[in-house]
Each structure stands twice: as C-alpha cells, then as structure tokens.
C-alpha cells in the first residue's frame, strides 16, 4: 500500500484543510515516505494480539450526577471570535 495524491486530497478534505497544488505535491511525497516506513508493521503476525488503547489498565471511572458552577454567558463568550445575541456567531449554515 502506498499513499497517492488522490488519498492526500481525500484526507485533506476530511480534515478540512485546503491544499495548494504545490502543497499537495510536497505532502504526498513526505507522507508516502512515512507511510512506507510504517508499512514495516505489516510484517508482524498480530492475529492473536489484543489491541492496547491505554497502557495502564483502568476502568469504570464515573462522576456523580451533581451540578457544579458553569461559566457565565459573559465568560463563555469572552473567548468568542464573534458573538451576537448571547450566541457564538458563525458563517451562515445551510442545511
């Protein structure tokens, strides 16, 4: 397997990154090299190996259903790029 220009275009679109033609060319080259390098994992026989998501085994971490103070509207919107009517303002969304 190797990563093609088409693949890079596809993942860039998924990741909401707009690439110029030059960037597409460059990233395809470096990514192909990296993907080629990680291909070495295909050599390993992993049929009976369980995947590890967390190296330190943990489980059943739960929080009691009690409210804590939220931010105020002013605090929340203090980080906003743009705010209007108590809301975060964004470009028009078309459904």
């Amino acid at each position: 397997m190797s990563i093609s220009k088409q693949d890079v275009k596809y993942v860039a679109a998924l990741a909401r990154i707009d690439l110029s033609d030059g960037e597409l060319e460059g990233f395809t080259q470096t990514l192909a090299k990296i993907v080629h390098y990680v291909e070495q994992l295909q050599k390993l026989d992993l049929d009976n190996v369980k995947p590890t998501s967390h190296a330190v085994p943990m489980g059943n971490v739960l929080r009691s259903d009690e409210t804590l103070k939220s931010l105020t509207q002013q605090q929340a919107l203090s980080i906003a790029v743009e705010a209007k009517d108590g809301c975060f303002k964004v470009p028009l969304v078309i459904e």
């Binding site: 929080r63 939220s70 509207q73 929340a76 108590g86």
Partner: peptide, 17 residues
C-alpha cells in the same frame, strides 16, 4: 461534565470548558 442538564435557559449559560 457537571453543567446542569436543563431546557429553556438563557443561551450559553449551561456551559463549561
């Protein structure tokens, strides 16, 4: 998170990081 699960509040008041 520990924000109140409540309907009908003023916008962006039941929010936290």
């Amino acid at each position: 998170c520990s924000c109140a699960n409540q309907y009908g509040c003023a916008s962006n008041t039941n929010v936290c990081p």
